[in-house]
């Protein structure tokens, strides 16, 4: 029997097992009933062609989308945009004071004088005083006031403040020792924390402050690690908890919503970033800061 052909049974009467095997005459051919699929193909409620096309398109998309790449992160320093001041990281280096005039020109008139006085005073420092003691001097008090004023400003003012902080860490003694407590490193850490709270997040998209902010953060990590690691046994809990709470908020490592600054840190200093998730969370920052500022050792490089 070929496709579509039908045989009509003409035996009639009652059926028995043996009778069913008798040969039957084929008297007429009949078209088989139309299937639902064929009806759909002719334009049913949902035409098969439409369903098949959508499924095929989804399959193709499911395969091709597997190759979808993440959009490349463009760090501010990779952009065409020029920083307000060229090579801002130079200002945080040992010889940063040589370019202080360039930066001073970008500051407001009212802040230019105090900033230059403090900066020059720090650069001329030879005796390596203890941090808290130096901050108690008139010049030190002026530094704190200037930092507070600069903290309300824009990127050049932020950079000027960062330069003062790094110089403070470079020219004063804050490394805890047998007879020197951790209060000096904690004091510098507090000043840096205030600066980071003001400038870190917006630095992630600022071509001038991007790298300096990361550098200040690493140095903050180094200083605070010295503070909470000062005891021979265990650690000092107050600076440890304070730093951990601040860093978590700044980088978004716990809130599961990474901040822009956290992302920038992860891209630029992944080891420091991953270290934030460990118990000794500032160890990575400490390590990176030692590479970035080899001359800053908490003892004026002596």
């Amino acid at each position: 029997m070929g496709p579509g052909a039908v045989r009509r049974w003409e035996s009639g009467g009652s059926f028995s097992c043996t009778a069913a095997l008798r040969p039957a005459p084929w008297v007429r051919m009949r078209t088989p009933r139309t299937s639902a699929h064929q009806r759909n193909q002719r334009g049913g409620a949902v035409p098969f062609a439409l369903v098949a096309s959508v499924a095929a398109a989804l399959f193709v998309a499911a395969i091709l989308l597997r190759g979808l790449e993440a959009p490349v992160r463009v760090a501010p320093e990779q952009r065409e945009e020029r920083p307000t001041i060229a090579s801002p990281m130079q200002l945080l280096g040992v010889s940063g004071s040589r370019r202080s005039a360039e930066l001073a020109a970008l500051l407001p008139e009212a802040l230019r004088g105090p900033w230059q006085r403090v900066q020059t005073g720090l650069a001329a420092q030879q005796a390596c005083p203890k941090t808290i003691e130096w901050l108690a001097t008139p010049r030190g008090q002026e530094l704190e006031r200037t930092l507070a004023e600069l903290g309300r400003g824009d990127a050049p003012q932020g950079l000027a403040a960062a330069m003062l902080l790094v110089d403070l860490a470079r020219r004063t003694q804050w490394e805890p020792g047998m007879f020197l407590g951790a209060e000096h490193s904690e004091r510098i850490g507090d000043l840096m924390q205030a600066w980071l709270a003001r400038f870190a997040e917006k630095s992630a998209d600022d071509v001038t402050l991007h790298e300096p902010a990361l550098a200040v953060f690493l140095l903050y990590g180094r200083v605070m690690r010295e503070a909470y690691d000062a005891p021979t046994f265990g650690r000092s809990q107050a600076p440890f908890e304070r730093a951990r709470s601040f860093v978590r908020g700044l980088c978004g490592t716990v809130a599961k919503s990474q901040t822009d600054f956290g992302r920038a840190l992860q891209t630029r200093h992944p080891r420091a970033y991953l270290g934030l998730l460990e118990d000794d969370f500032l160890a990575g920052c400490d390590e990176e800061a030692r590479l970035l500022f080899p001359d800053i050792d908490g003892d004026c490089g002596k």
Partner: peptide, 15 residues
């Protein structure tokens, strides 16, 4: 047909 559509949609989500 709809089972095939469901498979394709699921494949898209897994991709």
């Amino acid at each position: 047909s709809f089972a095939c559509l469901l498979i394709a949609f699921g494949g898209l989500l897994l991709a």
